[in-house]
Design a protein around this nucleic acid. Structure first.
Lengths: 117, 117
DNA sequence: ATAATATACCTAACGCAATTAGGTATAAAT
DNA sequence: ATTTATACCTAATTGCGTTAGGTATATTAT
């Protein structure tokens, strides 16, 4: 299981990234995330639904209700233009922070060495 | 500038990673982070000092005061064995979440495609 | 000389978001 | 007939960054 803060940092960009591949609904998004993270991220619905609500309020995603043939109701979300812009920004930030770690962990050809005082 | 949540997620592992390269003190750690993140992460001292205090309380780092020749006092921190273990865990988690993004963003040879309902 | 900036540490109140712990409702499986 | 899976929602608690202060010394600029 990932730390609380890592969960918090990855939630929004993960949702946006998944919805960038096509519309989807909350319950399914949770499963996609568990699968794609290989079990590291196990979201609860109580965590995700408020997130989706906030993101819709921010205009990053839009929702519409769908009634399936089995009689279930699903709230499908799709990414908006604003959401795509937001994703691009979050992606850049993540990659830069990741690059910092990569250098700190010696996984690059330009590794980190402490500044001399 | 990075988002609040991304800052929160990266703070502890960054501190541990830097101290894994040798002991250091708060004010300098802030500068190391700014440099290594290429300006993306601009920590404030009011953010870092409580973090260092908590991490020491958790036993991840140890501190000792040093008086420099210039007459300044510095609180140097070094990583503990527990801190090294913690870093190894955080590192694994980060890499797994990062790999999820890498796949979602198509930066791999085993990319993500949504589950068919 | 004096003012401003850099160094170096600390604390307190506020806001935001995950966690925990509930709840409702229907369909499928045991 | 009961349990599990599907599918959504809300409220109280907790943790942590942010904002806004504070103290003290050394260096640089005016």
């Amino acid at each position: 299981m990932a730390t609380k803060t890592l969960v918090a940092a990855s939630t929004k960009p993960l949702v946006l990234s998944i919805l960038a591949h096509g519309e989807n609904y909350g319950y399914q998004i949770i499963k996609e995330v568990e699968q794609i993270s290989e079990g590291v991220l196990q979201w609860t619905d109580a965590m995700l639904y408020p997130v989706l609500g906030r993101m819709e309020k921010e205009g990053l995603i839009r929702s519409h209700w769908v009634k399936t043939e089995q009689g279930r109701r699903r709230k499908y979300y799709r990414i908006t233009l604003l959401g795509e812009e937001n994703l691009a920004q979050e992606k850049q930030q993540w990659l830069k922070v990741n690059y910092a770690f990569v250098r700190l962990w010696g996984l690059t050809d330009t590794p980190y060495s402490p500044t001399k005082a």
